[in-house]
Each structure stands twice: as structure tokens, then as C-alpha cells.
Nucleic acid binder design. Structure first.
Lengths: 239, 239
DNA sequence: TCGACAATTAGAACGTGTTCCAAATATTCT
DNA sequence: AGAATATTTGGAACACGTTCTAATTGTCGA
């Protein structure tokens, strides 16, 4: 955990080892990152072919049983890859826009940019996360990660309420769920091959705009309607 | 194909065998239904445990290789079970309601009733359909079935447009996609265990209502807003 | 009726995710 | 330093989806 993208795992930096509790725990964390990194590289290089636990283990230089000790299942490893790739919350914090609704769509564009810039990688990831034949099936994100994300979106929506753009009768929780479902539905269609990558962004944005417009005050309704039509055009052009 | 729910497969009724082209084709169709039925019964009895191809084949009284000859993959068999269970279009046609929007929600309730009345069964089915580790991955429905459903929904939406309830600037195609994504997002959350069965209906309906309200005319906006608040209440009570 | 032919069959095989085991290894505690 | 302990390791094993082979079955055309 707390794996950063651009550090190399070195044996040497034990100076601050007291932070992670003993040496044993540190070695475990190191194996963890090696495994996650091996899985990531394999997906990057060959898509979902060759993404077997035996391959991941060999690449990470560990035994086949070790990923099961540290993660529990292949799905958990893939989930770790997924969450490791996304420094979302960091970039999320420094988003700026003219009003709360523009901010929502800026956040949406940011979230989508990951998938659009590296479709092969994230499609493989998503498809692997949809495989719930195992026992636990923790959903598409770690519980704490999920809750953090939801809270961030709720805050964005509440800002829109404060600016008088959406009706306060529709709870931020309600709206957040609706937006999340719209996005996940689009992602699902995309992962299943029913939606081309170029249509993913506009489709999800359209779902956002429609749901927000459904909860909008007269003040917020205008810009949202315009956004809906813009997304619709973009989709029509794409076809 | 053309499998009806409540007929028993009998060897005797060959009188109208000329309808299906030769005897060979008929035997093949019979094996098909036996396999689908075996898979359905296994899911009904034991959930996703024991839903192996070897089990299905044994139960259907065929060899392990036969399902592969007739369907191609386990996923295709499950998809056949899924589509066999749903005499949706039949019941869909005879829906009645005061106005087009009520009709949309009546159709939605009908669609959801399958899942809510037999959650175990359909959750297993959905989870199995999400497994796309195989090659083809035809999505959540057969192409022709999918297109038929989409057309039906589009017709419903166009009726709402004709009655002046939703803005014609928002295409029926656009709106249909938005509704479909909202529903699929809710189904996904449900299948992954993030949404309890009791919340599935209201959540999906809420997504529908919000998206429709986002495209509504002043005439349609009122009832939709009321519906949104009703769904929200229902969800709040459920928690 | 009989040969041609299409499909199913049994069975083995491959690679997969996952689990179990005894043995080896490294760390922690006293 | 030496004992106790936690983890990894190699290896085998299981059930699974899927594919392949040769042999067999039952149906169709002449």
C-alpha cells in the first residue's frame, strides 16, 4: 500500500524503516508492489493474454502461492493494479471551473481521460474486474476508496446545490448514485464491446447531463440542456 | 430456438416435424432445449455452485462436447437461458397506462419484476454473463434481441415526445441509451453485491426518472419530479 | 436397401485459478 | 546466540472451460 508510481524498489533505503513497522512487513510490502507492477506490465504488453497468475508470479520473482498469500485472488491483484494507476484524488482536488456544474464535468473528463488515453489497458482491467466467479467479489473498488470517491462527488453536487443550480429536494446522495450508475452503465457497454472508445466520453457525459438536468433548478437547466445537445451532436458525428 | 416455457420435450409429437426441416435438425433443437433447461434447473437449485459444463452436460444427457458444438461456450449457454426465461416482448405489448411516461415506468417495472421475484437466479445469470474471459463476448444479449428491445423502448420514448412530455430535441435514440445505461449501472451494482435487491427497483427507476426529467418539457417535468421524489423516499425508507 | 455423410460420443489433453502440504528461509523475541 | 515464529517456497493436486482425436451413431439421398 501507499505505492507511488515513480519510485524504484531498492534494498538500500532502510533508514526510515521504522515507519513501516519491522523488516518483515517491509519485505512483504516490497513483494506486494513487485506483484502489482508485474501484473501491470503484463497487461500493458500483451493485454489479457498471458495474464495468468503463474506469469505474474514468475515476472515478480515470487512463488505462485505468494500472490495468494498477499492478495487472496487474481481479482484482488487486478484491483490493486487498478487503484494503483489512479492518482485521481490528487488531480481531483485542484480542478477549477466557472461554476459547480462545469466542475462536475471537469471531474468527469478527468476520470474518463484515463480510460480514453489507454483503452486497451483499462478495458482489460475492467473485464478482469467483472469476473466475480471467485468468492468475495468486493465490487469495482476497495470499500474505503469507493467511499472516498463517493464523498468527493457528493461534495461537488452539494456545491451545485449551494450555487442554486440543482434542486435541494434531490439529495446529493441520490444524485451521486444516479451519476455513478450512468457512468458504470456506459463503462460496462464499453467493456463489453458494445460502445467504441470514441463514444465512451460523450455517452457518459450525456448520462451525467441528463440526470443533472433532471434535478436542476431553472437557473441550472439552461446550460445543462445546451450540454446535452452538444454531447448528442458529438455522438451523432461519431457514428 | 422458439423454446416455450411450459412444454415437455416428448419424442412422440413428430406429426408436425415437417415444420422444422429434417429429423436431424429437430433432434439438434431438442438437445438445445435439453441443455438450456439443464442449465436453468442447475442454477435454480444450487446457484452458481455446480454450474459446470460437465454438470450441465450430464444433466442434459449429452456429452461434454455437445454444448460446445451447439452453443460454442458456457457463456452462450447461459445467455440462452437468460433469453429463454424472458417472454418480455409478449407482456410488453399489452401494457397500458394513462400516458406515455407512465407506460415507460410500467415497462420498467415489468422488466425489473423478473429480477426482483427471483433474485438468486438472475443474479447468478448476470454474474455469469459478465464473465467475458472467452473470445467472442457478445454483450448482454443476442444482437437481434438487443435491437428488438431497443426499438421497443425507442417507440415508448417517441410516444412521450408525441404527447408533448419530452423535448424532441433530445433524440429517442439518445434517451434510450441513457435509460439503458442507467438500468445497467444499477444492475451491475446489484450483481456485484453493492446494492440490495430491495433497492434495485427504486434505484433503476430513479435513474430513469432523472434522465427523462432532464429531457422533459414543462408539461412532463411535474409528474417526473414527483416520481423522482417518490423513488428517493422509498430508498431512504429502505435504508 | 445401402452407401455417404453429419453429428454426437468418450476420452484425453492443455492451461487456467486456487488450495494444500512439508520443507526451507528469514525475522523477531528472550 | 539461540529458540520461536511468520512467510515464502516448490510441488502436487483439484475442478474448471475448452479443444482435440478417433470411433460411433443415426439420418439422408439414390
Amino acid at each position: 500500500m501507499t505505492a507511488v508510481l515513480d519510485d524504484e524498489v531498492e534494498e538500500g533505503r532502510l533508514e526510515d524503516g521504522h515507519l513501516d513497522g519491522g523488516r518483515r512487513e517491509q519485505a512483504k510490502a516490497e513483494r506486494r508492489t513487485r506483484i502489482v507492477r508485474a501484473a501491470r506490465d503484463l497487461i500493458r504488453e500483451t493485454g489479457d493474454t498471458d495474464l495468468s497468475m503463474r506469469m505474474i508470479a514468475r515476472r515478480a520473482g515470487v512463488s505462485l502461492t505468494t500472490p495468494y498469500n498477499l492478495f487472496g485472488s487474481k481479482r484482488a491483484v487486478v484491483l490493486a493494479v487498478f487503484e494503483d494507476e489512479r492518482d485521481f484524488v490528487v488531480r481531483f482536488a485542484r480542478l477549477e471551473a466557472a461554476n459547480a456544474i462545469d466542475r462536475i464535468f471537469a471531474a468527469h473528463d478527468l476520470a474518463m481521460s484515463y480510460f480514453i488515453e489507454d483503452p486497451q489497458f483499462y478495458k482489460t482491467l475492467w473485464k478482469a474486474l467483472l469476473n466475480t466467479q471467485g468468492a468475495d467479489s468486493t465490487g469495482l473498488a476497495t470499500p474505503e476508496r469507493l467511499e472516498r470517491n463517493r464523498a468527493a462527488w457528493r461534495a461537488l453536487i452539494e456545491a451545485a446545490q449551494d450555487e442554486g443550480l440543482t434542486d435541494t429536494m434531490v439529495t446529493s446522495d441520490t444524485l451521486e448514485r444516479a451519476l455513478s450508475n450512468a457512468a458504470n452503465g456506459a463503462m460496462l457497454a464499453w467493456a463489453m464491446g458494445a460502445l467504441p472508445t470514441r463514444a465512451l466520453g460523450p455517452t457518459a457525459a450525456l448520462g451525467y447531463a441528463l440526470a443533472l438536468a433532471g434535478a436542476a433548478t431553472p437557473l441550472g437547466a439552461g446550460p445543462l440542456r445546451a450540454r446535452i445537445l452538444r454531447c448528442q451532436e458529438k455522438l451523432a458525428r461519431g457514428n
